[in-house]
Design a protein around this nucleic acid. Structure first.
Lengths: 139, 139
DNA sequence: ATATATGCAAACGATTTGCCACTAA
DNA sequence: TTAGTGGCAAATCGTTTGCATATAT
């Protein structure tokens, strides 16, 4: 294992991810970082995002998309993904799901990932355009 | 919408995905397909896998990995991912999770994705090698 | 007959990596 | 001082696509 150095770049990247609730992509973090540090490179952003994930400081998400999103909140929590506008928000349950007691096989659940899909409040009303499924069912 | 032709390639690819419970990757399907049809192309495999997903004949999964896996069972069900050997198996619950009644916000859940992580039965005992986290924490 | 699918190879986009200079410890 | 890190550009890898040909319907 390597010992981490707290460089300006790493500090900045962590601050950016922690400062937003928008569950940003690596490229969004890169664009933000460049405002503060114009010469920062995309490779550095990727490297540090990975390091921060491994350190447990942030969390990596990925929703079938071809790219990852990052979450400044490393605690296990759930996400709601709007299938119209792709926005990702946090979502909570009234009670713990308690999956371990409900699972049929006697396997030990160490952790799990749950993502909820639907229309967010903004897209709820405007369910017009027939965009029931925004995927590539076109042509 | 386009009308689908039932080509030999599409039939073969569907049969391959349906015939296994190993939740194969596109490349695994390609390798299998080549045994039957040596000149089939990887592009055709990808194209047909996508078509079959859109038709609802199979399901696309993706677990943080950089690549997708496919599942011959298109019905909504849950997966157990072994964090040691990466194997993906189906998993069931004794009772429905009933997320809609437990969610705090009054959003409507249209569908959800849940993945369970832990050690499969084979890797359970052999939790030796300190491979608690098989990721890239090496070097 | 003809629109859709194929094989092939080149393109793509997100992410990773090799290299050498730099800098935090 | 020195091992980890940054910047840069090239490489990688899964996946997609353009194009001319083949084939289901």
């Amino acid at each position: 294992m390597s010992k981490h150095r707290m460089t300006k770049q790493k500090t900045l990247i962590l601050a950016i991810v922690k400062s937003t609730t928008c569950h940003p992509t690596a490229d969004w973090v890169y664009q933000e970082a460049r405002k503060e540090m114009p010469k920062i490179s995309l490779g550095t952003v990727y490297r540090n995002l990975r390091l921060l994930v491994e350190m447990g400081a942030i969390m990596e998400l990925n929703y079938g998309s071809s790219f990852s999103r990052f979450d400044g909140n490393p605690e296990n929590h759930y996400h709601f993904v709007c299938i119209n506008c792709d926005k990702v928000t946090d979502i909570a349950f009234k009670e713990p799901l308690d999956l371990n007691s409900k699972v049929v096989d006697n396997v030990e659940i160490l952790f799990h990932r749950l993502e909820i899909y639907g229309y967010c409040k903004e897209c709820q009303g405007s369910r017009k355009q027939g965009t029931e499924n925004k995927s590539r069912e076109s042509e």
